[in-house]
Design a protein around this nucleic acid. Structure first.
Lengths: 147, 147
DNA sequence: TTTCATGTAATATATGAAGTTACATGAAAC
DNA sequence: GTTTCATGTAACTTCATATATTACATGAAA
């Protein structure tokens, strides 16, 4: 089953933006994310509405971060993307007449609900700043290795 | 994103089989699962290989349970289905050159790995017998309500 | 030997995400 | 003020892939 990679893409984009001191155009982001400027705008629209990023038109326009990296969690981003479905597994029929299927659905729904809550809790504790730090570590290791 | 409903379908099928004392044909299962006999056979193939169900050809053939309901967990079934992807969210690129993307992927992979383990643990504690009991309760409530 | 059922390969269909085109809007540069 | 550059967004196309379907082989019971 194909996975929704928007969260991953957006994180990638935001960290690149953090490393830039000028606005980045949709085209530049699209290039480093291996996609297309319109897809970038579409994906970032929710983040803009949530105040996580800002966009400017015209000359020297483009995308900039709207908040400090420390204050943005993966949960914020997931929300800004419209809280897309977390699980690739689900019920065939959400409102079945069949009592057997109702029992099955209830068990699965319960389970997925609880596990999703755990995931969201964890997302809520992971900040962009932490990802940026990890990147810095990787960069240092890479340079060391090269030298 | 469309979800894989095979787990849900199969649970539904198995509970119906448990309530029958004769083999159920793919056609009968397909009918109550709102799908197609070939899809049923395809889906059940893994369960047969895992010994969870048996299939017989010819007259009076069809599908029967291979094990006691108490001994089968959702985890067994998930495994028998080939351990399909649990999450609808994933990385864009599994082996990126970009160090930023590597940092992002590492964080997401870690998180999803841990959460998936929790889900599997929970699946491992949920048996078909428990689902069947829940169905029985629902049936009793339904009858009461009707009377 | 006919009927009924599964087993499975090959193909077709349907769905929805991602990509693309086209054009409107608005800001800065000149 | 008009040209250029950038986003905003609707409409449309492409592509991936899960699901459904067709077709036929296999094998058991009647």
């Amino acid at each position: 089953m194909k996975r929704d990679s928007r969260l991953s893409s957006v994180l990638h984009a935001l960290l690149h933006m953090a490393a830039h001191d000028r606005p980045m155009t949709s085209e530049a982001l699209a290039h480093c994310m291996n996609t297309n400027p319109v897809v970038v705008r579409r994906t970032m629209a929710g983040l803009r509405d949530a105040g996580l990023v800002r966009s400017e038109k015209g000359h020297n326009g483009g995308w900039t971060l709207g908040r400090d990296l420390k204050s943005v969690t993966l949960r914020d981003i997931h929300q800004a993307l419209g809280e897309p479905a977390v699980f690739a597994i689900g019920n065939r029929n959400e409102n079945p007449q069949c009592l057997v299927e109702q029992a099955v659905n209830a068990a699965l729904d319960d389970t997925f609900h609880d596990i999703e809550a755990l995931l969201m809790e964890r997302f809520g504790r992971l900040t962009l700043a932490e990802l940026a730090e990890d990147f810095t570590r990787r960069l240092a290791a890479y340079k060391q290795n090269k030298a």
